[in-house]
Write a protein that binds this DNA or RNA. Structure first.
Lengths: 207, 207
DNA sequence: CGTATTTTTGACTATTTTCAAGGGATGTGG
DNA sequence: CCACATCCCTTGAAAATAGTCAAAAATACG
């Protein structure tokens, strides 16, 4: 979606930026001057609450975009989970493009509606699901997104990220994973590698 | 936003529809042929989980719109909380309008981005807030939206709706309200009337 | 006015968090 | 390449928060 802009005149070419693991792309409260799309690696968008609690809005994987805001400022902090490449486009350029080309406007709207759908699904998860259900849903979703439905894949985030995304503590995340391993639903190896051994059972747990 | 369409030719005039309390406007899974805006009253959009648990995505108050979907089907059931008037516009008409007029496209995008913002805020609430914090945030938000920040207002929904929106049980909702009353933060009268007696304290509870 | 529905309250239970400690992995400098 | 330090993950026990079940009280409705 962002890549279209290259062909347009008078609009700067989107810049590629590489980020090291843990590097911050932008912070909550900063002027939201750019919109980004992940090329490789992964990004988390998060928010720190007053008392130190953290919430992770979403993990962004290759092909997914983030950073588009209704207001002037970023409402989230964006950090790379692993070595990551993103392309950034000036927000003003995007606005110009959407004003000129209805097809681009439609594409931006569709992307935003998909984010909304994702957020809505996640609300159901956070509001009405148990720890086991949350973890099963998370693992299945990740398999889909990081590995195109392959059962073996590498999680780019650590336990604390998963916890802050699912509204749990790292201890609960760890305990549920251990339980899944014991029940033969998954296999956990070093380096964040996960193997979903029993997808139907995970789907059943997911509810 | 929807009202703009009346001036356009070849596009049907949006229809007004009145709903009785409890009446269903559309159900999850139905073809999403129309988009709606609340004129008066209030609407809830909800989803029933397999095992009977319910999640309420949002409450829609006058001026707010709902029912716009990325896919072909409604992902939520929409029901009137009170006697309600909505205007409905054919989705195909809206799509035609946005294709023709970049200003309308921008308005639709902005509305969708606001919904996304709302959903994101609600995710933080569901994921990282205690029952007391959830209730305080809910009451303050409602005061803002149903009564423009007035401290005395009528809640159009019942306890079970609040519970299913905040990821709590009706008993917990009731208990927290009772506690707020006892601590002098609010006053509860019949007919869903609420009086926020100590807004700063509620803000403090909200966190 | 009587009935049905909704809300409140109480006692008990379950799930998840908190606090605490130990074990593993990862990375860096010598 | 090893030793050390750091960070991360796991596990256990105790505590807290919210949920469940049950019944009474209040409210709404015909």
């Amino acid at each position: 979606m962002l890549a279209v802009s290259i062909s347009k005149s008078g609009i700067s070419v989107p810049r590629v930026r590489t980020l090291k693991k843990g590097e911050t792309l932008f912070e909550e409260g900063e002027a939201a001057a750019h919109v980004y799309q992940v090329v490789s690696g992964s990004v988390r968008t998060s928010k720190l609450l007053g008392d130190g609690r953290r919430h992770i809005d979403a993990f962004h994987l290759p092909g997914e975009s983030f950073g588009l805001e209704a207001g002037a400022k970023h409402r989230w902090t964006a950090e790379a989970l692993s070595p990551t490449g993103v392309i950034g486009m000036r927000r003003s350029d995007l606005e110009e493009l959407t004003a000129q080309d209805p097809a681009i406007a439609a594409a931006v709207l569709k992307t935003t509606m998909r984010s909304l759908q994702r957020a809505q699904d996640h609300m159901v998860l956070l509001g009405r699901r148990s720890a086991r259900e949350k973890m099963a849903a998370f693992l299945l979703d990740m398999a889909e997104r990081v590995a195109n439905g392959q059962r073996r894949f590498e999680l780019p985030m650590r336990r604390s990220d998963i916890a802050d995304h699912l509204g749990l503590t790292i201890e609960t995340v760890s305990r549920v994973l251990t339980q899944f391993v014991r029940n033969g639903l998954i296999h956990v190896a070093g380096g964040g590698w996960i193997n979903l051994r029993d997808v139907p059972a995970l789907r059943h747990v997911e509810g």
